[in-house]
Design a protein around this nucleic acid. Structure first.
Length: 472
RNA sequence: GCUCCCAUCGUCUAGAGGCCUAGGACACAGCCCUCUCAAGGCUGGUACGAGGGUUCGAAUCCCUCUGGGAGCGCCA
């Protein structure tokens, strides 16, 4: 019985999710969805020193926010779990035993200091630093001696004799690696903990994962996992290695360099659909140039259209998708999006009106903040362009505006008609000074909508102020 | 150090020997539209890292170099 496509995302809870991780997760999720398969989430928390539970929750929140939904995971066992590696010790125990019994692994008593020394001398001799095989040929007596000395062994996988390991990478195509260049690697630490190469590969197999999309950095390690799985008689997934995501500057993304996290993007007000639309096109050319609704993503994801060259995370491109996403917000969603910047005492309908009004001129909620002053506050000192436009129009223009406003109210069309009749101005000559007097700035939404949104006493105040200014 | 991966406009990319005087999107510039900004329409500039081959013909194949990245961990 063919279970179909199963993919997974397997983060270790050692930090916040970055765009690179998120993109790998998204692609894996879409790979499964596009084939009607299943997507699972596995937490690789074998490093109890660096892992933190709050990161697990944070990562899951980020994934959920991006619309990446897992069919099975730590919170959702389907019988093949548990999905936290820290809870899978019993599963691993049996495998360690088998590996050792069948001669695929051996206890290693080397200390970190000894290993480090070996590495240094290999490096100095111009050789790749590999485990020298010290404990591989230890006899029973030698082992007993080390145990008696109080040494606790790790378990090391024995790379079999010379051979060429071949696999067909989902994105790189056929690969061939000489196994003799591989050193015996640890599968269990001296403290009993599982090591990545081991638990990662084993869990994929045990959980029925059929395709693995992961970072480029795992490409050269793949043969180890293939050899290990074969020794265990487990079926290996098909691997696909995605190029790493770089910063705009071209450097690898890293916490140290302050690369943005998904959580930070969300806090800044980027919309999930904007981020995911952007991610969908980073190193993947299966999607059209136009906006795609997240619900349609799976239709536009094609594993054979994954790029091999590293992509840069570019805020300018993200801004484009953000603009597209903002444009698509409806009234309620827009009001909710801008809620953080609205005054707490604004009623729902005012929020919705203001949100609708501002949508075309706002990329992030913080951009709306300065518009709030225009809508209901102090304009502050006038900028040079505003001042000169107002002075140019002159005091009688604004006096006339005041009269016209008294007649027409917030109906800009009527106001402009009356003002035009009184001053002989029309078009830009009329609207420009009006806009500056009312908003203090040259850009913004339709003046008609603005006029309707600004409380009338404020309109009078600003027109009067402009009349005074023009008189000076 | 050794091994491996990658290399087209500023960015994301199309391109699997002739369809490429290299196409699209974003960004940028100009024009149109318009009360402004944005949106929309039109126009424009900008790229095959370098050098050798192979071929009638190369962005596409091969080699070298350069540049970038990764792996070689009792990190994942």
């Amino acid at each position: 019985m063919e279970p179909g496509i199963v993919t997974r995302f397997a983060p270790s809870p050692t930090g916040a999710l970055h765009p690179g991780n998120a993109r790998t997760a998204l692609f894996s999720f879409l790979l499964a969805r596009s084939a009607g398969g299943r997507f699972i989430l596995r937490v690789e928390d074998t490093d109890r020193a660096r892992g933190r539970d709050d990161f697990i929750a944070a990562q899951q929140a980020d994934l959920a926010w991006l619309g990446i939904a897992w069919d099975a995971g730590p919170d959702r066992n389907d019988g093949r779990g548990p999905y936290r590696q820290s809870e899978r010790g019993a599963v691993y125990e049996g495998l360690y035993e088998r590996l050792e019994r069948e001669g695929h692994a051996y206890p290693c008593y080397c200390t970190p200091a000894e290993l480090d020394m070996a590495r240094r001398s290999q490096l100095a001799a111009g050789e790749p630093p590999r485990y020298p095989g010290t404990c591989r040929k230890l006899d029973a007596a030698a082992r007993a001696e080390r145990v008696a000395a109080g040494r606790r062994p790790g378990l090391r996988f024995a790379i079999p004799g010379p051979e060429i390991v071949r696999f067909d990478d989902l994105v790189r195509g056929p690969q061939a690696v000489d196994a003799s260049t591989l050193g015996d690697f640890l599968v269990r630490r001296a403290d009993g903990g599982a090591v990545f190469f081991f638990c990662n590969a084993v869990d994929d197999a045990l959980m029925g994962v059929s395709q693995v999309l992961r970072g480029d950095d795992h490409l050269s390690n793949t043969p180890r996992q293939l050899l290990l799985l074969r020794a265990l008689g487990l079926r290996a997934p098909r691997y696909g290695h995605l190029p790493l995501l770089l910063d705009a500057s071209g450097a690898p993304q890293s916490k140290r360099r302050g690369s943005v996290t998904i959580a930070e993007l969300r806090e800044q007000g980027y919309l999930a659909s904007a981020v995911s639309n952007y991610l969908l096109r980073l190193g993947h050319h299966g999607a059209p140039d136009e906006w795609v609704e997240p619900a349609e993503f799976a239709k536009h994801f094609h594993a054979d259209k994954l790029g091999r060259a590293p992509a840069h995370f570019d805020p300018v491109q993200l801004a484009h998708w953000q603009r597209e996403a903002v444009r698509r917000l409806d009234g309620d969603a827009a009001a909710a999006w801008l809620a953080p910047v609205f005054p707490g005492n604004w009623p729902a309908n005012r929020r919705a009106d203001a949100a609708r009004l501002l949508l075309g001129n706002v990329l992030l909620p913080r951009d709306a903040r300065e518009w709030l002053a225009v809508l209901d506050g102090e304009l502050g000192p006038l900028a040079a362009d505003a001042r000169s436009a107002i002075v140019e129009a002159g005091p009688e223009f604004f006096s006339a505006a005041l009269v016209s406003f008294a007649e027409a109210g917030a109906d800009l069309k009527a106001l402009a008609a009356g003002l035009g009749k009184r001053t002989g101005r029309k078009g830009a000559a009329l609207y420009r000074p009006l806009r500056f007097a009312l908003t203090g700035r040259h850009d913004g939404p339709e003046l008609a909508a603005l006029l309707a949104a600004i409380p009338q006493p404020l309109v009078r105040e600003r027109l009067a102020g402009a009349a005074r200014l023009g008189g000076n």
